[in-house]
Design a protein around this nucleic acid. Structure first.
Lengths: 342, 342
DNA sequence: TTGTACGCGTTATCAG
DNA sequence: CTGATAACGCGTACAA
């Protein structure tokens, strides 16, 4: 019953009549050490109930094996998928995650970044808050060459890696689909265009309309946080318009806004898609529950998480091939459902 | 530009012509140190760009200021709310979270627990996986008196604290509501009764039926993982029954199963609540999107997270009053919506 | 292939 | 109130 006091490499050393240095090396599977002694060391460690002391180790190596993850919100479907993916890959590589949320607030993002820096994370994974205007708060990381990987909501101006989906292309495709269904007055519920995801979705839509010789109607372009309330507000706006000026289709930059806009319009007696068609973005669970089901864009949060963290870990391990790739674009698929069919 | 090398308390000491010991004490706001010197120390730390070295500190104090969180899945609405609450409170108290998921798998839960133990977390927060049969894998924690707090899916046999909601009461109330609406053949979609939450929801329902002199119809009791598929399967089962033997109401132990059961029944032409009424559990976002809106039970994941972690931190700080409270029950509210109204 | 000896940055004990 | 000084447990030059 090795119960009370912690076992150290010295205890193992004494037990085996060898030096602590040998034990240390053995535990690291150092090939310099005799295979047999290595085996003995591991056995002894097992028997004595040894567990390595991370702090002592970190103190020496200056590596924490901890990665900071800074996200806008924990409680969204997409983000928890991302985190699940990260957690998987991280633990596979022996890394831990420290997770914090900015609550879409630049100020809190700043504070959290500082905290992570002070905790000496080996690297940082970050998706920018709605508010963030620049990445000055990440300077300490850049200065110390602590790798930073952006994902989803990224800042491309830096030499860091960014992991994204093809927002432009997906938005283009979804708009094209609407146009091909015959919709001509397409409204856009967009987010802050300081965030690449919203900017590109807007641009993709613009381009698709242009290519099909349809106007982008500025009056029908709303910018918001894309919350439930924003969806409701958008619906009220639509209802406030003279019938002729109403959109015949809505492309929202996320499913939440789309769905709550739909619900509100339906409650007001409009029919979907007959009166107004809809398309969203994210393939959130609610998009499969709303009636009619919502056309949307699907992409894997899990994959994004895995790719982002794997890239970061490669940086940490000095795999230089990948450090050149400073932009990884993942696939996103259009999912056509009843809400956008003529 | 203090840029390249890390500043230590020695640098501050040199800078101020005092000893490192004094600096260390000053940084900890030790009242033994002259208020004035303390101020100087903080200023110097600021100027020089000092950041304390957690490892060195942990190595001495044997405290990691890290709390392990072990959950079934990251990517559920409820759980991300819980984590958000935990993260908040944790950072407020200067603690970090290490998060891992068992994916509802007892084996992975075991592995993760070991990892956390080896990382020397100061305490553990855990919600048991669907599969878990016992808590032997937590023995190392118990033995070393590392505090463990269970939440939501708990194990009451231990001296640890558990944070739960009144599952029994909520299930009782929701069943009572169904009965009062006039429903007499109430079906139950339940989870593994090894998990307190599902066991108590079942028992609450049983008791309510009994109190109203209605039978609990064993044939109408399905046990599953309460996934989307399970909801669909339940619907198929209902449809396979002779019309007379069908339930007139369904109480599902979560919203996902309820909603997907509803969707499937609706697709088959049944009307809700006229043909079958529904009630769920969790107040998941989908419950507000499904038509008719789903009657359910609401409780705050955020609060549960905060309470659980605060309790744990109190343990760590030796606040003994609270260590007596080994069961905290949070409120849960019935939310009546159209799916269960006559 | 193994051992010796030192330092990583803190905190804590003991003097003063 | 402050200063020396010794650990904490590990990793690694350097030697053997």
């Amino acid at each position: 019953m090795p119960d009370d006091k912690e076992i150290t490499i010295y205890d193992i050393a004494k037990h085996l009549n060898i030096s602590a240095a040998t034990v240390s090396r053995g535990l690291q599977d150092n090939p310099l050490i005799n295979k047999n002694t290595r085996k003995k060391i591991f056995e002894a460690a097992q028997v004595l109930g040894y567990r390595s002391n991370t702090f002592a180790s970190s103190l020496r190596t200056k590596q924490t094996h901890t990665i900071g993850v800074l996200v806008p919100r924990l409680n969204s479907y997409f983000m928890s998928a991302v985190l699940a993916g990260m957690e998987n890959a991280a633990s596979r590589h022996g890394y831990n995650l420290i997770i914090a949320q900015s609550l879409e607030n630049a100020e809190k993002e700043k504070t959290n970044a500082t905290t992570m820096f002070n905790k000496r994370v080996d690297g940082l994974l970050i998706s920018l808050s709605y508010d963030t205007e620049n990445v000055h708060h990440l300077e300490p990381f850049f200065r110390r060459k602590i790798p930073v990987v952006f994902f989803d909501r990224v800042d491309l101006r830096k030499e860091s890696t960014s992991v994204v989906i093809d927002n432009f292309g997906a938005a283009y495709d979804i708009t094209k689909h609407l146009v091909e269904q015959g919709y001509k007055r397409v409204m856009h519920l967009g987010g802050n265009i300081m965030r690449n995801v919203y900017k590109e979705r807007l641009e993709g839509m613009r381009k698709a309309l242009k290519d099909h010789k349809l106007p982008f109607i500025e009056k029908l372009h709303l910018t918001s946080t894309l919350s439930e309330d924003a969806g409701v507000e958008a619906a009220k706006f639509i209802l406030s318009l003279p019938v002729k000026e109403r959109p015949d289709a809505v492309f929202a930059a996320n499913d939440t806004a789309a769905v709550y806009c739909m619900i509100t319009l339906k409650a007001a007696g409009l029919r979907i898609p007959e009166d107004v068609a809809f398309a969203g973005f994210n393939n959130d669970p609610i998009s499969k529950v709303i009636e009619p089901n919502l056309t949307t864009v699907n992409y894997s949060g899990e994959t994004m998480g895995e790719v982002a963290i794997t890239n970061l870990i490669n940086h940490l391990k000095g795999v230089s091939d990948l450090s050149i790739t400073n932009l990884v674009t993942l696939r996103a698929d259009l999912i056509i459902r009843a809400s956008s069919l003529k």
